[in-house]
């Protein structure tokens, strides 16, 4: 594999929410991959600085929200002399199409990558109506 990683600057979240967070941290939009498989939808999000305890996932109606809290403390005996990336929390929401089995959602977080497996709900069995011949 020779493809090179592209330099994608972190995108600050363009939230139009009127409700503000009490924490005055910058909020970034994590980059995601979303793959739909036969039985489920897999969402992978890059959230460096977040671990399993500092992530909050919510599904309300069809809105899936991800929030990752990042430790904003900085090393105290050194000073920042050069900065290419900003540090802040992560937030992003998606509207899910189709029915998701909310009780079977699985989330894992490893090395700053969140992986969500959203199983699709069992499709309602099609009900066949037989038409009887009239007498």
């Amino acid at each position: 594999m020779t493809e090179k990683a592209k330099n994608l600057p972190k995108k600050e979240s363009e939230s139009t929410d009127v409700v503000e967070k009490t924490r005055s941290a910058r909020i970034y939009k994590p980059n995601v991959d979303i793959v739909e498989r036969d039985g489920d939808i897999v969402l992978t999000a890059d959230m460096p600085g977040v671990d399993e305890k500092s992530v909050d996932i919510n599904l309300e109606k069809n809105i899936l929200s991800i929030y990752g809290k990042v430790d904003l403390s900085t090393p105290d005996d050194v000073r920042l002399v050069y900065s290419e990336y900003g540090i802040g929390d992560y937030q992003r929401s998606f509207t899910l199409s189709g029915e998701i089995d909310k009780d079977k959602i699985k989330a894992t977080l490893k090395n700053g990558v969140l992986k969500l497996i959203l199983p699709k709900a069992e499709p309602l069995k099609a009900k066949k109506i037989t038409v009887e011949a009239g007498e």
């Binding site: 020779t2 090179k4 990683a5 592209k6 330099n7 994608l8 600057p9 972190k10 890059d46 959230m47 460096p48 600085g49 900085t74 090393p75 005996d77 050194v78 000073r79 920042l80 002399v81 050069y82 900065s83 290419e84 990336y85 540090i87 490893k110 090395n111 700053g112 990558v113």
Partner: peptide, 27 residues
């Protein structure tokens, strides 16, 4: 092809005795 494209982004912190380089490499 061997040259850098500037990825990943880094932050550099220093004092007189040391430098601290941090970079985000999730996954």
């Amino acid at each position: 092809t061997a040259a850098s494209q500037g990825f990943p982004s880094v932050n550099v912190w220093t004092n007189e005795e040391k430098a601290l380089v941090t970079t985000e490499l999730p996954g």
